[in-house]
Design a protein around this nucleic acid. Structure first.
Length: 956
RNA sequence: GCGGGAGUCGCCCAGCCUGGUCAAAGGCGUAGGGCUUAGGACCCUAUCUCUUAGGAGUUCGUGGGUUCAAAUCCCACCUCCCGCACCA
């Protein structure tokens, strides 16, 4: 039988649709609000995207069956810049992107033509992604759908950002960004040739010296070494510029002068000065007024920093070597200069730079080994060095901390400025222009560095359920590490800052509390309210319970009952019960989600849970367009069916692990589901009466499966749950079949029907379509998605039958074991069960001792001897030891069960049950004796080895 | 540098939080058998070593430690992977 997956899926999706199953309004039931980070529509979703949504859908469906009123909504995140870059690339007919659209995503040519407009791209993929979500069977309430650039949402974002500002969460400051001088715009990865992210090194500084009437600025990464400066370096072959920078006159390289224009400075060029003219002059160090000579050095590059460098020969190998070279050449001034050590580091002598250079055998200032020497020393001194007594009030401070202190001190005195540089330059904009670093003044920041805010976020996290639990610490670390974060951009789609219309609310900042908007989006969508109704007073009243209904009604021009209805809707669904997202968003979105909630909402609306999942690999490799191993989700659904894809995604890895998706697992799952479906067709409901031992056992087993699966899903260990339903239980079932077949029973269809119904019900959140089909074939009249989640019932667990069945299994195993080792063909098998009352008493006593946690031989023996009833046990240490060993190899659950329940008659049970199964397995009769039977057949004296739950065996 | 994670029986991977049910699940591969005209699919059996009585030995990156008992807890080390921002 081959299943037409798509036909079955269609059929059931239509049914769900007809009854509007997933449209959720407030009611009397308890609610669950499940959300997923909405997609950014610049490409169709592939299997990797499907993971997060599938997990959330399983979660939603599980809660629905448990009787909750579950809201699972979806939106689309249009905010941001990537589609802008895409549109530009398409306009310029870039082959790579066009090929991708045509060959991997199969976008129709007439649609590609429209893609020169960014919104058209988003619109196209929005529909594409949505169709995929529907085809995957996600139980989404589509009435609440929105994009982040519709007017209603923009009103909401304006309210959000205004509220944050009013709450003092937004500050203004300056910030360096990668910048295209021609486009007059910041550049991100999507705007550059080759898609490189411009990396900015913001730890680079400019320190001012004075030379005559001019400022002589040098750049450095190590401001703390200012105390060890012996001289300055200039390149004699470079033509420097005399410039006016704001109100000061500076000497810098031409390249530097250009960079400075982007650092909020008024720059004008006044004239040239050749490097050689600077050589030999004396400059003044501003921090202590000392006079310092300018010397020549070839290694000074005009393109690096200001084109001028300060020399710290004690700690900078390059400076040291350049000085040595001059001395060797007999340079008069240089001969007078000695390195000034300012940092003490274990493992290095007085002049660390000399140590390193000598050890590595550096010969001159153009030696390649200087790079290595520099790296080593910088790192070692930073992590292990301490400032010495030449550093004034900074003496004794570790370099690690001292650097920032010295920097602040110099900065406060106006001797130092930041000089951010492009770390991975040159980076080119798509327009071909080389990018620069620009310091944006008047940038708006969310003040995530605020300690009070952080504390509140930690408080929220403490009360939250984070799945898997182990990444809770990661969240805390992120909170600790966060600082001011720009929340506005100058380009891209989105919402304008209400108070500064030059800026657009940055895309990660407009997606942090939007889940609240789902509560009202459906009223906007159905026309109950329009965007202009959504005033600040309206939002304040609904979300914050601030202000009053009168002003909300007056400003929004909405009837009071409409406002109250929407407020109720929000209060019913909020807070978010579970937020699903990928692991990569822990550092930003998910943390901001927490921070913004605590900054805006009352404690009772703080989120309850975050579920984080890993990414999806394709046949062990990371999915990427360039590798061509991306499978669009809709293609996969069409080829393999939605349910097999869902299960393959879930079963390939536990929550946080990266899932490896491969086609073998999909077909394995298809086969499994096919055989399950066939089983459903063949299993009819039947009467259940006269339970036999194995019936009681399998019915008990299904109870433990219910409990395990439920428990696993609650912790979102879906792989484990699915595995239990689909595979683990199979081994119990096959034992059951073996037993019933051996007995030749025909009356088990009722029991099988009950068991498979439970399995299908539990499977349905995972594979919703095929489960409906199975459920129907099983003869149920309702839909499985509307049936109740199977509930664990303790009363259905029959402890004695579990023990008895375990005994039977282990006896069969033992016989098989003996046969394997001895390789004999059995003619006759004889079983001897223990009947010695004293041994049984001792056994139960030991069991009791072990359940309490006492496990070693000595302690057990002591306890036995202490009890008059079991004192004689000391004569049988061998027996005691074996019993302890037997019990060790049993689970705690079974041990406790054994202890609690009364014993049962082993002989009676085995005589009754062993015959059939023995004939089937070994083809011979099995006789069962009790050790004390008078008619016992025991030619080899095996019977005395029998122990409780461990009969002795004779095979001839 | 800062922070996070991983190393398991041919391969992939579960178990570790909560120590004993662990020679360690599942999948793949391999070998044998069944079914089949054949192939595929499916089902059964085996798959660290030794073993003619249900047993023993050596294993979970390396080396120590705690414990009656360690894949699991603690310490040190080795190796590998990921993130470090204004970008979705």
């Amino acid at each position: 039988m081959t299943i037409n997956w798509n036909a079955i899926e269609d059929k059931w999706r239509k049914r769900w649709n007809e009854t509007k199953d997933f449209e959720t309004d407030p009611n009397d039931k308890e609610k669950k609000f499940i959300t997923v980070a909405y997609p950014y529509p610049n490409s169709p979703q592939h299997i990797g995207h499907g993971r997060t949504y599938t997990l959330a859908d399983v979660h939603s469906r599980f809660y629905r069956m448990q009787g909750y009123n579950v809201l699972f909504p979806m939106g689309f995140h249009y905010t941001g810049t990537p589609v802008l870059g895409m549109a530009k690339r398409i306009q310029s007919q870039e082959k790579e992107i066009l090929d991708g659209l045509r060959n991997i995503y199969h976008v129709p040519e007439e649609d590609i033509k429209t893609f020169v407009e960014p919104i058209k791209i988003a619109d196209y993929f929005h529909e594409e992604i949505k169709s995929g979500m529907i085809e995957m069977g996600y139980s989404i309430d589509w009435r609440r759908e929105f994009t982040t650039i519709v007017p209603g949402y923009q009103k909401f974002i304006e309210w959000q950002i205004t509220t944050l500002k009013e709450n003092g969460r937004i500050i203004q400051g300056s910030h360096p960004v990668g910048w295209c001088p021609r486009d007059q715009n910041p550049v991100s990865q999507h705007d550059t040739m080759g898609d490189v992210e411009p990396k900015i090194d913001d730890k680079n500084y400019l320190v001012k010296f004075k030379l005559d009437d001019f400022i002589f600025p040098v750049t450095t990464l190590r401001p703390e070494t200012i105390f060890g400066v012996t001289n300055l370096w200039a390149n004699p072959n470079t033509v420097y510029k005399k410039i006016k920078a704001d109100n000061e006159r500076w000497i810098v390289s031409e390249e530097c002068a250009k960079k400075l224009e982007f650092f909020e400075k008024e720059i004008s060029i006044e004239g040239d000065i050749v490097g050689s003219e600077l050589i030999g002059k004396y400059a003044t160090a501003l921090h202590n007024g000392s006079e310092i000579p300018v010397l020549e050095a070839d290694f000074v590059e005009p393109g690096m920093g200001t084109g001028l460098v300060m020399s710290v020969p004690a700690h900078a190998p390059k400076d040291y070597q350049a000085l040595m070279d001059l001395k060797a050449a007999g340079h008069e001034l240089a001969l007078k200069i000695e390195p000034i050590p300012v940092i003490v580091t274990e493992g290095y002598g007085d002049i660390p730079a000399r140590d390193v250079c000598e050890r590595l055998g550096v010969t001159n200032q153009s030696d390649q080994k200087l790079e290595e020497a520099t790296n080593e020393l910088y790192l070692k001194e930073f992590t292990g060095g301490k400032l010495n007594d030449r550093c004034g009030k900074f003496q004794g401070i570790k370099v690690e901390f001292g650097r920032d202190k010295v920097r602040e001190w110099l900065q406060d005195n106006g001797h130092l400025e930041r000089f951010p540089v492009l770390e991975n330059g040159p980076v080119r904009c798509r327009c071909g222009t080389e990018c620069v670093v620009k310091i944006l003044s008047n940038q708006w920041f969310l003040n995530y560095g605020d300690e009070e805010w952080k504390e509140k976020a930690r408080d929220c996290l403490d009360g939250m359920n984070i799945l898997p639990n182990k990444i809770k610490t990661e969240f805390k670390d992120v909170i600790d590490w966060l600082h001011e974060r720009a929340c506005a951009r100058q380009q891209g789609l989105g919402t304008k800052l209400p108070w500064d219309k030059d800026w657009i609310v940055e895309s990660l900042s407009d997606s942090v509390i939007y889940m609240a908007y789902y509560a009202i989006s459906r009223f906007v969508n159905d026309g109950t309210v329009s965007p202009e109704n959504l005033t600040k007073e309206f939002f304040d009243y609904i979300f914050l319970d601030r202000g009053n209904i009168a002003s909300a009604a007056q400003t929004s021009k909405l009837p009071r009952e409409v406002i109250e209805m929407m407020k109720k809707e929000f209060q019913y669904f909020y807070p978010v019960d579970s937020r699903h997202s990928g692991r990569d968003l822990v550092q930003n979105h998910l943390s901001f989600f927490v921070l913004n909630h605590v900054a805006i909402f009352d404690r009772k609306y703080w989120p309850k849970e975050i579920v984080v999942n890993g990414s999806v690999m394709m046949d062990g490799a990371k999915m990427s367009k360039s590798m061509g191993n991306i499978i669009p989700l809709r293609t996969a659904i069409r080829d393999h069916g939605a349910d097999p894809i869902r299960l393959a995604i879930i079963s390939s890895a536990e929550l946080l692990q990266d899932a490896d998706f491969n086609m073998e697992s999909v077909s394995g799952i298809q086969n499994k589901l096919e055989s399950l479906l066939e089983e459903c067709s063949n299993t009819k409901e039947g009467k259940i009466d006269n339970l036999e031992a194995e019936d009681r056992w399998i019915l008990s087993k299904i109870q433990s499966m219910i409990s395990e699966v439920t428990d696993a899903i609650e912790k979102m260990r879906l792989r484990e749950a699915l595995h239990d339903i689909l595979f683990s239980f199979e081994s119990d079932l096959s034992w059951y079949r073996k037993r019933t077949e051996a007995k030749g029973r025909k009356n088990i269809s009722g029991i099988l029907h009950r068991i498979i119904s439970v399995r299908v019900a539990m499977l349905s959140p995972f594979a919703p379509h095929i489960s409906e089909e199975m459920w129907e074939r099983l003869g149920h009249s309702n839909q499985v998605s509307k049936s109740a989640w199977p509930e664990y019932s303790k009363e259905s667990v029959d402890a004695t039958s579990i023990q008895a069945e375990e005994l039977l299994k282990s006896t069969i195993d033992d016989i098989a074991n003996i046969l394997r080792v001895t390789k004999i063909t059995p003619q006759k098998i004889v079983i001897y069960v223990n009947s010695d009352q004293f041994r049984l008493t001792v056994y139960r006593k030991i069991l009791g001792i072990m359940v309490r946690g006492q496990n070693n031989m000595g302690d057990v023996m002591k306890e036995l001897i202490a009890d008059p009833e079991t004192r004689e046990a000391k004569k049988m240490p061998d027996y005691i030891q074996k019993v302890i060993k037997d019990l060790h190899s049993e689970s705690e659950v079974i041990k406790e069960m054994k202890l609690k329940s009364k014993g049962f008659d082993e002989k009676e049970f085995l005589s009754l049950e062993l015959g059939d199964i023995g004939r089937k397995e070994f083809g011979v009769e099995i006789q069962v004796y009790s050790e004390s039977d008078s008619d016992i057949y025991d030619p080899k004296g095996k019977a005395r080895h029998a122990r409780p739950f461990k009969p002795a065996i004779l095979i001839e």
